[in-house]
Amino acid sequence: MPGLAVFWGCRVLSGDVALELSVRKVLETLGVDITDLEPQSCCGEPIRSLNLTASCYLALRILALSASKGYNEVLMPCSKGYFMANWSLDMLSRSGELSEAISKAFSSEGLSLDRLSRPIDLVELVYRAVGPEGLRNKVEKPLGLRVALHPGCYFMRSKPGTGEGLRKLAELRELLSAVGVEAPYYPGMMDCCGGSLWLTRQDAALTLAGSKLKAASESSLDCLVVLCPSCFEMLDARQEDALSAVGEKKGVPVLYLPQLLGLALGIDPAELGLRFNRSPVEELSVVR
């Protein structure tokens, strides 16, 4: 019985290993097997502005490729990849013209729109594989943190208008609470980090990221927690520029969700790729 394929996405492959290392380590500790989907290719997200059909083609091709290798589901730890898969499926179900164009594009590789893997994200996977109780039982180091959770646009609104985002957020909070992390509401929690605006308006993108960091600081929470590599890039890698865009100086530690889970599971910070975070994560006692 084939298990679960994993599609990492361009950001991970172009050097954002903090996400990959921590996802692999956490899933290994939880006893969840994943197999790398090969070859890995673009999910289509960056070319949405250029051509909708082509970007949906790239997203759906990942689902079709994964299905052709016998996987029913494909884990997409990158929120943008996960969103692209879901959005393309929505577009497909409503537009005959799109499905015709993509079927045609698929034909030369023998892929089919009738056989697509189902995309799942990390929260759904962990919730289903071990659940909050199972996770609680594996905790080695209850974190006792109050974090500024940044769910991000593409996790919260992967299926816009369906209410799915709030359900996912509730599951995520249950998982966090299982590892001793409280994620209260803070002003701006649902706001955008500016990641997608980076392509066209870098100044405004940095202001959005800076406002997010400022909101996290002002709410006196311990750190920011993100799910998406695009958010991580804006809030962690570009933190200095983002802070100066809003006239702030105080740095904010930024962790990936699987890094946070990994710390609670007692995994060595080095194995969670924490040396690749640029933000002041050493301020957190759980990291030291």
Partner: peptide, 10 residues
């Protein structure tokens, strides 16, 4: 200038 944040669609 759109941030592609999907709040409008939501």
């Amino acid at each position: 200038d759109c941030a592609l944040c999907l709040k409008c669609a939501e």
